[in-house]
Design a binder for these strands. Structure first.
Lengths: 220, 220
DNA sequence: TATATAATTTAGACAAATCTAAAAATAAAC
DNA sequence: GTTTATTTTTAGATTTGTCTAAATTATATA
């Protein structure tokens, strides 16, 4: 079995590799893990010894098949626990990340199998992120970020890229949540901010940065 | 906050102190924790520095108020999670101890508060052990071990002292569980074993050791 | 009570995960 | 294509939790 630290490194590597296509560098990991580059170097040697990553000094790393499976199973556990916390324990979506971060390290395949059944085998978590199945396969979905929409185009919020409490609380304040209908009515040349109408009623002005973190399914 | 190791030591000390009245010795702890006495000595110094235990070298330890609160909260968490695993995820009572042993270290008061509500604020866990409330108070119950019963006396199983899988599986095989009615029909002089009738039908012979691990509420 | 036995602590070591400071390798700039 | 800057690794320490072996203290026995 793996330590919490090892599991967290593998998750970090997976996440970085998801956006940057090529191999993952030490600095990128140290920034995600909030540790020194030296600590990362030490850990990479260990992860390589355990055959979770392919590692060549100074060349960055990629996950092995084993490492990749571990990462998707951790993500599966994290997201299933988030569904439990929101659906069953009635937490808000902005409260669940840190608790799930601990719960994902609980070690029992049977537990996750049963939790999945108990929750009705959900395909997406409370932030709209897909939950990989037991084989590590993610459900794909047609989605774009709000910034991809033109004026007068409309979408339904299906996900958020950023999971931090401040961002989610900001969306709560705006009464924006998964399922919220949004129509772009103006893109402001000066600061590239978006003026949107949510659920055919409330008008809001949101920054480009905010819009870039909203994933929507286009509707006509 | 405390490390897993520290929490496990505090739980061990609490459990030993529960049965032995006086202060708890290093060897007793090392035997429960399956570590060397030397490791225990090291840890006792740390726990004492953190004011979780009263410690005088060579004199054994007792929990401070802080230590005692920590112990009961860990027990509360452990037992609530066991209820979740059995009631909601449909695990058997012999499968839940090890998983709860991990879950009890998850750190969120709000999580436990909500879990308790979700489960309907249960007062006993799947093994019949009382669940301390948020203030650390245990519900008491009139109970004796089966060995305290005389011939022809009857009881209902309300708890088991031993939580190991082999013991609980043995009880499963005998169709003995919480709520099972049992009547002592014979105490065998030779090996002190008990002959009992369960649920007015099946007759079983169980060892004194087994009987001593069954907690019953006397019925007439 | 003196001595043997048991319990406990100390000494010294090790693995895991981290750090800072310094060295080495790679990439960027001129 | 050197030189400079950046990235990465190594060296040497530290903390936590553990170990074995040796020393010390307490308890039991004769």
């Amino acid at each position: 079995m793996y330590t919490f630290a090892e599991e967290n490194y593998i998750k970090a590597i997976f996440k970085i590799a998801e956006r940057e296509q090529n191999s993952v560098g030490t600095n990128a990991i140290s920034s995600v893990m909030k540790t020194s580059a030296a600590s990362v170097s030490d850990m990479l040697r260990k992860l390589s010894d355990k055959e979770l990553i392919h590692y060549e000094k100074y060349k960055g790393v990629t996950l092995t098949t084993t490492g990749s499976k571990l990462a998707t199973q951790l993500i599966r556990k994290h997201r299933l626990w988030e569904v439990f916390l929101v659906d069953k324990l009635k937490f808000r979506w902005d409260q669940v990340h840190d608790i799930a971060e601990e719960l994902e390290h609980i070690n029992s395949d049977e537990l996750i199998r049963r939790l999945d059944v108990f929750l009705g085998s959900p395909k997406f978590d409370p932030h709209g992120d897909p939950i990989p199945n037991a084989q590590g396969k993610f459900t794909l979905r047609n989605q774009v970020t709000l910034t991809d929409l033109q004026i007068e185009q409309q979408g339904v919020l299906v996900g958020v890229k950023e999971h931090t409490t401040p961002f989610l609380e900001y969306l709560n304040d705006l009464k924006i949540g998964l399922g919220t209908h949004m129509k772009v009515v103006k893109i402001n040349a000066f600061d590239e901010s978006f003026t949107i109408i949510i659920n055919q009623s409330q008008k809001h002005n949101i920054s480009k940065k905010t819009a870039a973190n909203l994933q929507v399914k286009v509707v006509k």
